[in-house]
């Protein structure tokens, strides 16, 4: 029974984390009663479970996640959507349009979502043996117009959202912009151009400093500094 790390240490693959009566969570594996890190990330322990929060990695679809994707193909019974993961998502007509429109929609799917258009969707089912199924029925889901898209490393999305949305809500209120964060790392920002620019900078900084603490406060400071600066400019 021994632990070879401190909370939130940066660990690298193959690093010995704990020996004895512990359990492994994500990003760690167990062999001969020893727990090792499997990915580069921050090690944590909760109860008797040792896990590693990854800093890098691709998005793997998970049911109930909100994602932002691009329509890449129209099939006989729906759309194929690129959600920036190893697996393209299927959006069948029945989940893409309202029940009332379903029969009509099948005639010309392009009227609803055309190739190249960006949609916000929720993952209905994903089990890696088949391509994930998504839906655009629901509040806040569907086609998006205007604004800009940016990408963050998917494993750092929780940091962009923050505990109970603290980070993202702070960004939205401070900057008065619309921000939608997909779990797949695609972020949509819409608002006044100068504020969008500040938001994009902030998102970039959050991604870069995702593994540091006290981030929300630091971001708030930089944003208010930039806002004051831009106000000064506009007054001149």
């Amino acid at each position: 029974m021994s632990i070879h790390f401190e909370q939130q240490d940066i660990v690298v693959p193959g690093q010995l984390l704990a020996e004895g009566d512990y359990r492994h969570g994500n990003g760690a594996f167990k062999e001969h009663e020893k727990i090792f890190a499997a990915v580069i990330g921050l090690v944590k322990m909760k109860g008797k479970t040792v896990y590693v929060v990854p800093l890098q990695g691709q998005y793997i679809p998970k049911a109930r996640d909100i994602v932002i994707g691009t329509v890449i193909e129209i099939t006989l019974n729906g759309w194929l959507v690129d959600i920036h993961s190893p697996y393209p998502a299927m959006l069948p007509v029945m989940h893409g349009v309202s029940r009332r429109d379903a029969t009509q929609a099948k005639e010309n799917l392009r009227q609803w979502y055309d190739v190249g258009e960006t949609i916000v969707a929720e993952i209905l089912a994903a089990d890696r043996t088949r391509d994930p199924l998504i839906t655009t029925r629901g509040r806040g889901l569907g086609k998006i117009r205007g604004g800009v898209l940016t990408h963050v490393i998917p494993t750092r999305v929780p940091r962009l959202i923050g505990r109970k949305g603290s980070m993202i809500n702070m960004l939205k209120t401070e900057l008065q912009t619309d921000i939608v964060v997909g779990q797949n790392g695609v972020v949509w920002v819409k608002g006044r151009p100068e504020r969008v620019a500040i938001a994009l900078d902030a998102i970039r900084q959050i991604q870069r400093e995702a593994h540091t603490s006290g981030l929300t406060d630091r971001i708030r400071d930089t944003i208010s500094a930039k806002l004051a600066e831009s106000k000064g400019e506009s007054l001149e």
Binding site: V12, P13, G14, G27, F29, F36, A38, V39, I40, G41, P54, L55, Q56, G57, Q58, T155
Partner: peptide, 9 residues
Amino acid sequence: ADAGIPMRG
């Protein structure tokens, strides 16, 4: 490792 691919070491 930099790509975040899970590995034994």
